[in-house]
Structures are given as C-alpha cells and as structure tokens.
Computed example of a mutant assay.
Amino acid sequence: MVNLSINLNNAMTKTTELKGSSFTLSALHLIDGDIKKASDHLKEKIELAPNFFASAPVVIDISNAGKDINFEQLKVAIVDAGMIPVGISGCKEQALQNQAKSAGFAIMNAARTVKENTAAESTEAEPSSQPVQGRESALIIRTPVRSGQQIYAKNRDLIILNHVSAGAEIIADGCIHIYGTLRGRALAGANGDLEATIFCQNLQSELISVAGNYWLSDNIQDEFWGKGVVISITDNTLSIEHLAL
C-alpha cells in the first residue's frame, strides 16, 4: 500500500508541460473592412480544396482594413465560411488590440530578428533566406502515397519515388522531390525556409506551398499542368518554371 501511494504521488508531480513550437498557418489579408467580401472569398477557396482548408486555423491580417472593424462579426463570418480564426496580425493600436482580444482573438506578430545599436543595422527587417543548418538526411518514400495519407519529413528533405494521389499530403521542412505524378498536396519549407523548393516530374496538384506561400490548382498556369516543374520562392512569392531534364 505504501509503494502504491508513492507511485501515484510521483505520477501526479508533472501534469502538464508548456513548450514552444511552430506551425504553418494560413493568413487572410483584409484589403478593406468589407467582412462579407472576405467571407465569400474564403468560402470559394474552401470549396476548391476542402480537405486542406475546412476547419483549418487562420490568422487575419488587418493592417489594411482600417480602424472600424467589428471583430465579433469578423469572427462569426470566418467560422461561417468554414475556418477557425485564431488571431489577428498587423494591428499596432492598443484600442484595436483590446477589441480583438475581447472578441476572443489572439494578438499575433510576425517573428523577425532585430539588431540594435550596430553600425551595420538594416533599415528594414527581412525574412531569413538561409537554409536550416544541421538538416538530417532526406526521407525517401518508394511506395505510392495513397489518398488520406500524410507524410512529414521533419527537418529534412523528402523524396517520393512514386505517385502522390489526390487527397494525400506530403510535407517537408526542406525540399520536396517527386519522381511521379503529384495529384495531392505538397508543402515544402514548412518551418519557413525560403530556400525550400519543390521538384516535380508531373504536376497535377490540388495545392502546392513553399514557406507558407501557396497556390491551389486553379492558380497553376496551363503550360505547367502535367509537366515537370520547379517551384520556389522569388521576391517572397511563389515562382514556377519548367524542369530542365
């Protein structure tokens, strides 16, 4: 009986643990204060890729939305569209932040490195384009990736030597190489690495993403559909070119 009591007490000494982590979130940029227009836009995107966007978390950037924002209405509209609002960004005014927090939004700011009191101080903070150091050897998948499967190559590249079916999802913190047909979703640079690249022999994807920048299938030009391509980040936006063999 004594031993049992000691074991239970030891088990209860640590009930939770709070750790830092990072996740890739979609960001909705409001170009004005028209909440209905933003909600309609979200609904259109979700209909195109419901498996990816439905019930997915989203951050709302309000930097261009003005000061007259009904945050309660905004929250309801995002939920009604089919996504889960988790926070706002682009808000520096304390009054707006208080309104957003009262509506249940977290206040989120993009991470950036700030250097103070140095002769080489930059006048504008820029995202790092350096590849992740200490990356592990690539994860190699030789079998087809079936619909409903998700493969994540944490802190390394991902190489698929087969096809990726519609409804499947492949994710890598580094680059992604697909030596078959890509019909599902491919997300490279999941930890924000702007040097990440997607190499694909046959592009027919539902969604492609590099460092959080994504295109749905309707954003891919016809000249690249079904072709070998290289997808990367140029000037902070997605860029696509033919794969030279």
Rank of each mutant, 00 (worst) to 15 (best):
Q221C: 06
N236P: 00
L8A: 10
A125C: 05
A120Q: 13
K92Y: 11
E93L: 13
S128C: 04
A49G: 00
F71Q: 07
F52E: 02
T143C: 04
G87S: 05
D157A: 10
V132K: 15
Q149A: 13
F53L: 11
T143W: 06
R183K: 14
V229Y: 12
Q99W: 02
A188R: 02
I171P: 09
G87V: 00
A188Q: 02
H29T: 13
E44S: 11
A49Y: 01
T181K: 14
R183A: 12
F105A: 04
F53R: 01
K36C: 03
G87P: 06
K154F: 10
Q204L: 13
K75V: 01
Y152M: 08
A120L: 15
G212T: 06
E223R: 14
Y179P: 03
G174V: 06
I240R: 08
D68A: 14
T123L: 11
I6C: 02
A49W: 00
N7T: 08
A168M: 10
Q99L: 13
G228R: 02
D173R: 00
V2S: 10
T197W: 00
F53Y: 15
I160G: 04
I160L: 15
S63C: 11
I88A: 09
T234A: 11
S205Q: 05
G184N: 03
E136L: 15
E93A: 14
A110L: 11
